[in-house]
Amino acid sequence: MDMTNLINGGMSRRYFLQVTGAGVVTATALGASAFRASAAGYDKFTWISPRGTLEVLDDYPYWAAKKMGYFGDLNTAMEPGPSDGTATVKFVDVGQADMGFPSPGVFSFAIQNGMKLKSVFHMGARDTFSIAFRKGEGMKDLKGLEGKTVLLGSAAWQAIVDPMLAAQGVDIKKVKYVEAGWPTWGTALAGGQGDAALSWEGLRAEWIATGLKFDYWLGVQNSKLPANTFVVRAADLEDPDKKAFLEQYLRGWAMGLEFGHQNPRAAVEAVFEQFPAFAKNTGPELGTTSLLQQDNVFRGDMDKREGWGWHDMASWQAFFDEIHKIGQITNPVKAEDVCSNELIKGANDFDHAKVKADADDYKLSDEFAKIDMENVRAHMFDDAV
């Protein structure tokens, strides 16, 4: 199935919004009946995944912060959401969730479709996305993808790949996309379908754990575009109580990020405790590799940032300019209009020395304690072309 042009102007909001007889907007067309926004606002704050699953290392800051008590008495929930790649913004828009974690491409889908969302905590300071190739078929110059087929887990991911390729000088009109399904698109590539597939940091290590070994063009080494971010309804920033809640909630994430940076193995243990089957399938060393890949993305060049979650507006503006040029959005977007750093100072206002002490004092299990961290770090990019 050729998914070209499905994203660009191919879907209206009527596709996923439904008005019930009582006049209540829901997202039931997406199977969202399990999600309900609290009538009292943030009595229960729901974060929704962009992947359709929580059994990954990507969300380690939350699980580490939860384990260490960094969220205090906030009533928080994590939901996997549907595997539809745009559900993470759709659900926030209609009030079925309170915060989503879209890629910049999916965020642009929200903007294009009139969703009044704002990015408040930029997790992905470096470009997490990569292009996977079968062993021996990797390419340093992505212009080689012209005339080729790229596999995606969701059709919505075209909005991720198009700007990444365009920024590398690729004529995206000459690239075909095939939706190979979640979570099977990597297996499809290994099985000989398509020429390449979208991947990202952290997933590289998780794929190795399942026997999928590829060569990679890495965005974290070659791209200046931003990566996934936390978005909320823009109106929530106008509500003083919700704004205060958001600041405290994001402080928990920032502390979890700091804890994971100081003691990656402890943060992996926090995730594994939540998902025993995932732990068994991944293992301590590859789990640690996955987390280190993501810490590299989330941290970025911290000397040039004003803390965890800080938006580099120049990077975001370059992204919005690129997607306007290729027609992914029809109107120009000013980064400052849709991205905000107003919560970043408060989110990073925590006792860094205490978090470091917590990380240093954490007692690792024997299987994690024996991991050679220097060896893991030395081989993090062995599969890069």
Rank of each mutant, 00 (worst) to 15 (best):
G52N: 12
F107D: 05
N296F: 14
L142T: 14
G194A: 10
P284H: 02
C339M: 15
G153L: 03
G144Q: 12
Q168M: 11
A270T: 02
E367A: 14
L250P: 00
G72V: 02
I48M: 12
G211S: 09
R377D: 03
I323H: 10
A110F: 05
K90P: 00
T330W: 01
E179C: 12
A384M: 13
A180P: 00
E55N: 13
A197Y: 05
T86W: 09
D162M: 03
G283S: 08
W253N: 00
G283V: 07
W63G: 04
G186W: 10
K345T: 14
G100N: 03
E258T: 12
K243F: 05
T20R: 13
A318M: 07
A87H: 12
K370P: 07
V25L: 14
T187G: 10
G138E: 08
K213E: 11
L198R: 04
D84M: 09
G144S: 10
I160A: 01
P183K: 04
A39Q: 07
G309T: 02
L250D: 00
I371K: 07
A335R: 01
F71A: 08
V231A: 04
L218Y: 06
F133G: 03
R134T: 10
V25I: 14
E342T: 09
I344F: 07
V338R: 03
K363V: 09
N263V: 06
V232H: 05
G52D: 08
A227Q: 10
D171V: 07
F319R: 06
Q18G: 03
L203H: 03
K370D: 02
S290M: 01
A234Q: 09
P276F: 05
H352F: 08
V89L: 02
T282A: 03
W207H: 04
L212T: 04
W316G: 02
L286G: 00
K90Y: 08
P61T: 06
T4C: 04
F350A: 06
P102S: 11
K143E: 05
D84F: 04
G260A: 11
M123I: 11
I160L: 07
N228C: 13
A159T: 09
E146S: 08
D195Q: 04
